[in-house]
Computed example of a mutant assay.
Amino acid sequence: MTVRPLISSLALLLTIASPFASAQQPSRFPVVSLTAGMHVIRAEVASTDAERQQGLMFREKMGPNEGMVFMFHAPASVCMWMKNTLIPLSVAFIDQDGKIVNIEDMQPQTTDSHCAKKQVHYALEMNLGWFRQKNIKPGMSIEGLPR
C-alpha cells in the first residue's frame, strides 16, 4: 500500500463532502440594525464578492425580522437568484440614498433572475411577503444601511 492513493482518496472524499458540510453549516456574517419605518430589522451584511455569492444559501429558516443586506460598493445593475436557497424570500433593491427602487418575490431553489429596475447600492432580502405585510413599498427608505 502506498500513501499516494490514500491521499487521492481522501482528497476525493473531501471534495465530495464539502457541499454537504456547507449545507449543514451556513456561513454567518456581521449584523447591523436597520429600520424600515417603525420596523427594526436585524440584517447580516454581505459586502464582499464571496459573501454576496454565498448569501442565504442553505439556510433552513430565518427569524421574522431577520434578513440580509447585500452591499455593492458602486452603483450596480443587480439581479438576484435563488440557487441553493431553501427559504422563499422577498428582495428590496435600494439606491445610494436608502430609497427602495423595487421589491421582488423569489421562490426557493430557482434560477429565475429578479432584477433592480435601475442601478442600486443595496439589496435587502427578507422572508417572503415581509415588505407587503409591513406595508413597505418602493419610494420608502431603509435607514442604517452600512456605508
Score class of each variant (00 low, 15 high):
M80I: 05
I94D: 04
N65R: 12
A74F: 11
V78Y: 12
S77P: 02
N65V: 07
N65I: 03
I103W: 06
P75D: 15
M80H: 00
V78P: 10
M82K: 05
I87A: 05
M71Q: 15
V78I: 15
I100T: 00
V101M: 08
N84Y: 11
V101E: 08
A74Y: 14
V91Q: 07
M82V: 02
S90D: 11
M71S: 14
D105P: 01
M82A: 02
M106N: 00
G98A: 02
G67S: 12
V91N: 02
D105Q: 11
N102D: 12
I100M: 04
N65A: 13
A74D: 14
E66T: 00
E104R: 15
D95R: 06
M80V: 06
L86D: 09
L86G: 00
D97H: 12
W81A: 01
M71C: 15
L86N: 09
T85W: 02
Q96A: 15
D105C: 01
P64W: 12
H73N: 14
E104S: 12
N65T: 13
I103V: 12
P88D: 03
E104Y: 01
S77C: 04
P64M: 13
V78H: 07
V91S: 06
M80N: 00
S90V: 07
T85C: 02
F72D: 11
V78G: 10
A76P: 03
D105W: 02
I87W: 07
A76Y: 12
A92I: 09
C79Y: 04
M80F: 11
V69C: 11
P75T: 11
W81H: 13
D105E: 14
K99G: 08
V91G: 05
T85E: 02
D105N: 15
D95G: 08
L86P: 00
S90L: 08
W81G: 01
